[in-house]
């Protein structure tokens, strides 16, 4: 692994495999994420990017047939140990999904909800305001906080989802193709927002868009299907974005980045 780590990862996958029933969708991934940096995960469709992301925050086990092997080390613990509470893990790792999915509640409630269920005791109005400001949404919605979150435009909805995620003060934010349903201008706003957030948060973003990965990320992980015919996703190459996009080590990475497959 060609990165500048000093070994202090925000979260680290260690020989992580994920199975849907018998099918191994992700095979033995070793991936250490640098704190307060943006790490992009790229790779062709179906190579397990979303699966890895879910596995990092214990979301996979909501699907009954899924089981994992290997470790995910977070906060000094393997989150798949039996005495680790997945609910607590999920709270500390936020997630933004591919399609904006605000709750059909008011904008205010969308932001406040997560904090509320996690026992937030402070000034809720203040939390909502500061969170919406960090999500670069306050100016657009401050006068209609009681409107439904679903009434906003797609880009605004996605920023609301980001606000919702950061309102619970997570350590890490995972984003699964957060801009794929948005137009270029909304995409740009989200990318700017990610830059700001990276001062305080560790961000992992899955993206289909090579330019986006190059623009926003400090590190890039390239996933692809294994070449043994079993169609399991594996980590092919991982390193600093500027190296990956200029001098990739593997041929397959270069082919993918230059658009020759995928």
């Amino acid at each position: 692994m060609a990165n500048s780590s000093n070994g202090n990862y925000a979260i680290k996958a260690d020989k992580l495999s994920v199975y849907y029933g018998e099918f191994r969708a992700v095979r033995e991934v070793d991936l250490g994420i640098e704190p307060r940096r943006i790490t992009a995960i790229i790779g062709p469709s179906g190579c397990g990017k979303s699966t890895v992301l879910r596995a990092l925050k214990s979301l996979c086990e909501l699907i009954p047939s899924v089981h994992t092997e290997g470790k995910v080390v977070f906060g000094g613990r393997n989150i798949y140990e039996l005495d680790v509470d997945p609910v607590e893990v999920r709270r500390r790792i936020g997630m933004v999904f591919q399609k904006p999915n605000p709750f059909p509640k008011s904008i205010y409630e969308n932001v406040a909800w997560g904090a509320r269920i996690n026992g937030f005791k402070g000034d809720m109005d203040e939390l909502v305001e500061s969170t919406l400001k960090s999500a670069a949404l306050w100016d657009e919605v401050h006068d209609k906080l009681d409107q439904s979150g679903t009434s906003l435009s797609g880009g605004q909805q996605q920023r609301l989802c980001i606000a919702r995620a950061i309102a619970v003060k997570p350590d890490i934010i995972l984003m699964d193709e957060p801009c794929s349903a948005l137009d270029p201008i909304a995409t740009l706003r989200i990318e700017e927002l990610m830059h700001d957030l990276a001062k305080d948060y560790t961000i992992i973003i899955v993206t289909h868009n090579m330019q986006q990965a190059a623009r926003v990320s400090d590190f890039t992980a390239f996933f692809s299907l294994s070449e043994d015919g079993k169609r399991a996703g594996t980590l092919m190459e991982y390193g600093e974005t500027k190296h990956m996009f200029t001098r990739p080590e593997k041929k397959i990475t270069e082919d993918y980045i230059t658009g020759r497959f995928g």
Partner: peptide, 17 residues
């Protein structure tokens, strides 16, 4: 939609919540 449940779990909500 499933996505709303996922969003809720992702915020650290329990099944009941």
């Amino acid at each position: 939609p499933r996505s709303l449940r996922e969003a809720s779990y992702a915020l650290g909500a329990t099944r009941l919540e």
